[in-house]
Simulated assay, not measured.
Amino acid sequence: MKENSIITNFHAHVYYNTETRDIAARIREGLEARFEVQLGHWHDQPIGPHPTSMYQVAFSPNQFPQVVPWLMLNREGLDILIHPETGDDVTDHTAHALWLGTKLNLNIGLLKRINAS
């Protein structure tokens, strides 16, 4: 059994499209106003393993009990991937992933290629 201490951080990926970008902006503003999180860049096109537009939110393990419930109640129908950072990108984005909304098909092959290099 693995220990929680190997989790260095968490990422939430908030997915949106052109019709839901304003909703994503509201969620982003709410996160920034309420929590000490690191907000990543807006990616209006698929990037890395992510199949649609998104931005990333990084937060520490001790913030999980506050940030994740807030996202659960305030995601306004958007799909959100939450995963730990353990140093194993493939497993973090798959076996260790938590989805709010619909589970999207990530390009895990890309992560495997990046990890192999």
Rank of each mutant, 00 (worst) to 15 (best):
F35L: 14
Q45M: 05
L100V: 08
N105I: 14
R26I: 13
G48S: 05
G101T: 10
M72D: 12
L104W: 07
A116I: 08
I47D: 12
K112T: 14
G40N: 04
P69A: 06
H11G: 07
G101D: 06
N17D: 08
P65I: 11
P49W: 06
R28Y: 08
L81P: 01
W70L: 13
H96E: 14
L100N: 08
S117G: 15
L100E: 04
S53Q: 04
W99H: 09
E85P: 03
V68T: 10
G87K: 03
Y15G: 04
F35E: 11
L110D: 07
D89E: 15
N115Q: 15
E29H: 12
F59S: 05
K112H: 03
L78K: 00
S53L: 00
S53N: 03
I27E: 02
Q38M: 07
D88G: 03
H13A: 06
H41T: 15
V57P: 03
T8D: 02
A58L: 12
Y16F: 14
N105C: 09
S53C: 02
G101A: 04
L106T: 08
T86F: 00
R113C: 12
D88T: 06
I47M: 11
I7E: 01
T91G: 02
G87W: 02
P65N: 07
N9F: 00
G87R: 00
F10Y: 07
G40F: 05
V57I: 13
I7S: 01
R21F: 01
T91E: 01
Q45Y: 08
D44P: 01
E32G: 06
L98M: 13
S5R: 01
A25T: 11
E19A: 06
P49L: 10
I80D: 03
K2G: 13
H41A: 10
I27M: 04
T18A: 09
Q63W: 02
S53I: 09
T52N: 02
R34P: 05
I23P: 02
